[in-house]
Simulated scan of single mutants.
Amino acid sequence: MSTNEISLRPAQETDALVLSAIHIAAIKALPTTLYTQKELLAWRNYQDKPDASKILKRMKVETLWIAIEGDIIMGFASFIVDELIALYVHPKYQGKGIGRALVQHFCDEATRQGIDKVITTASLYAEGFYLRLGFTAIQKAPHYLRGGVVVPVTKMSKTL
């Protein structure tokens, strides 16, 4: 699969259950090398089964875009103006340029709005990915998850 086969489109309410499943699957696939099992469980909101309601709430305040091939949703990104809030690719499709395409789309949208710098909060697993895309680490910071769980993350930015 090349990025030429990946299509991007705005997420629709009917996509919400699949997006929740991708979020859960992506976090479940992470090893416990940088975060504990308890932290990973909190990160996926203590869910083992998809819950469309959380994604539907996000759709009211965030812009969500999905990556598809044919009718298969492979990943998604959510953002608000200049901040990339979330980026998840199903483990089955990782390493194929999907995350890169979603981040590029986010940056292109920001540029179209006259924004010259974007930010994101990267998990320790994703820090290298963002560095390869031209982001710069600003600082390590705590990130507060449900249940009072706090994990280290990296605040990052990119000049467009």
Rank of each mutant, 00 (worst) to 15 (best):
D15N: 05
P31D: 15
I6Q: 11
E39G: 08
D82E: 00
C107R: 13
A16F: 14
H143L: 13
I85S: 15
T32F: 15
K28C: 07
L133I: 02
Y144K: 13
G97E: 01
L87F: 04
N4R: 06
I66A: 01
L34P: 01
E83T: 15
W43Y: 12
Q113G: 13
L34C: 01
A110T: 11
R58W: 14
T36A: 03
K117Q: 13
D108K: 03
K60I: 01
H143G: 12
L30H: 08
T120F: 00
R9V: 03
F79A: 08
L102R: 08
L17R: 10
R132Q: 11
A126W: 03
S20D: 02
S123L: 04
T3I: 08
A16W: 14
P31A: 14
P50R: 00
A141D: 09
G147M: 04
D15T: 02
G99K: 06
L8S: 07
D116M: 12
A26R: 07
V151K: 04
D108M: 12
V118T: 09
H90V: 11
F76G: 05
R9E: 07
L41I: 11
I24C: 05
F135K: 05
I66S: 06
Q104K: 14
S78Y: 02
L145H: 12
A101R: 08
L145W: 06
L30W: 15
L8M: 01
Q94S: 08
A141H: 10
L56F: 03
G148Q: 08
D51L: 14
Y144G: 08
E69A: 03
G134C: 00
V61K: 15
E69L: 13
G114M: 06
A86T: 03
H23L: 13
P10N: 06
T136R: 10
L8R: 05
I27R: 15
H23G: 13
I6A: 06
S7I: 11
L56G: 07
A122Y: 09
F106E: 04
K54I: 13
S2R: 04
P10A: 12
F106Q: 02
D116A: 11
L145D: 01
T120D: 06
I27S: 10
Y93C: 05
Y46T: 01
Q47M: 13
D108S: 05
L87M: 05
G99I: 09
F135A: 02
E127Q: 09
P50F: 05
S2V: 04
H90C: 12
A126P: 00
V150E: 11
K54G: 14
I66F: 05
A101Y: 01
A77V: 14
I6D: 00
T120I: 07
N4M: 02
G95V: 06
L160H: 10
Y93Q: 03
A110L: 10
I98A: 06
F79T: 06
Q12A: 10
T111V: 15
A21W: 13
I27M: 04
R58F: 06
E39C: 01
I98P: 08
G128L: 07
W43S: 00
K54H: 04
E83A: 13
L84H: 02
